[in-house]
């Protein structure tokens, strides 16, 4: 394993995380960490356990063993809601979008959720009684539309803002997932294969956006990605998984040269 396995002051830490699905050990004592202002990538072949790791970190999956820390807080047993309330947001490999909402409504909802989180309130719908009163209930304001449109345009979805997810291509749906994450204003963002379905130009644009996020807003980014070009171009640190185990970690340059990584991706020949 290479030099920088653990950061000095990581914003996010997962230690010895294990999870089993029936007879399959999906993760086996995997430890990773991610620092604010950096992009930490999680790579590996299909079935390596990358998305499962994101599930454990975000609370959508409950690990059998191991610890998840956000800053100094142990969130290992906290719900996904509580982790979201600690300024964590994520995208899904299979987009989890709402057929009934337009692109713009998705972004507005995520922005409102983020605002409640920042106000220190878990985004319950406790105010739903007020929302029943026609003149008090809050429809989408002009300011919210303007703010949402800015983000939507930035991600290249401007022409589709009044469409629903069923009218978007798969790539656009993934971008909308990213937009949701960004709209929450979260401090920790987990991206699960955001570039799948995008063409090269769109992928490069997305890469620049994620880089800006990390550096300018000091966001902790964990990126699960199959596109190694993108990973090596933008990430600060790379963790490599294979068959549920952490096989190597280090800088992109180190991982590009790593024998273990090459073996995991390309396999071994018999004479080796």
């Amino acid at each position: 394993m290479s030099t920088a396995t653990m950061n000095a002051n990581p914003a996010l830490r997962a230690e010895n995380v294990s999870i089993r699905f029936g007879g399959v050990q999906a993760l086996d004592a995997v430890s990773i960490s991610a620092k604010a202002g950096e992009i930490t990538a999680l790579i590996g072949p299909n079935g390596a356990g990358k998305s499962t790791m994101l599930g454990c970190i975000s609370g959508t999956l409950a690990q059998n063993q191991g610890t998840i820390m956000i800053g100094d807080t142990d969130v290992s047993k906290s719900s996904a809601q509580k982790r979201a309330a600690m300024n964590m947001a994520r995208t899904f490999q299979s987009p989890q979008l709402v057929t009934e909402l337009t692109v713009r409504e998705h972004v507005v909802l995520a922005a409102r959720a983020g605002k409640q989180v920042r106000a220190g309130k878990l985004a319950t719908t406790g105010r739903f009684v007020l929302d029943l009163i026609p003149f008090i209930s809050r429809g989408i304001s002009k300011a919210e539309i303007a703010s949402a449109d800015e983000l939507i345009n930035e991600l290249g979805l401007g022409r589709d803002k009044d469409k629903g997810p069923s009218d978007l291509t798969l790539g656009q749906r993934r971008l909308l997932e990213v937009a949701l994450c960004l709209a929450t204003g979260a401090e920790i963002m987990l991206f699960d294969e955001p570039s799948a379905g995008l063409d090269r130009a769109e992928t490069e644009h997305l890469g620049r956006l994620i880089q800006q996020l990390a550096s300018e807003r000091n966001i902790t980014v964990v990126l699960v990605e199959h596109d190694l070009e993108l990973v090596f171009a933008i990430s600060t640190r790379v963790f490599v998984l294979d068959f549920g185990k952490l096989i190597d970690s280090g800088t992109p340059a180190e991982m590009r040269a790593s024998k273990a990584v090459q073996t995991a991706y390309l396999g071994t020949t018999e004479d080796e």
Binding site: S58, G59, T60, S79, A80, Q81, A84, A85, A89, R90, F92, Q96, L97, V98, T99, E100, L101, E105, V108, L109, A110, R112, A113, Q116, V117, L122, A123, T124, T125, R127, F128, D131, S137, R138, G139, L180, T184
Partner: peptide, 22 residues
């Protein structure tokens, strides 16, 4: 309202609603 948007999210994806903090 916000509640209406949240309920639409819950109907479509409880996982998405949870990860937004609802």
């Amino acid at each position: 309202s916000t509640t209406g948007l949240v309920f639409a999210t819950i109907r479509a994806s409880r996982v998405r609603a949870a990860t937004l903090g609802f």
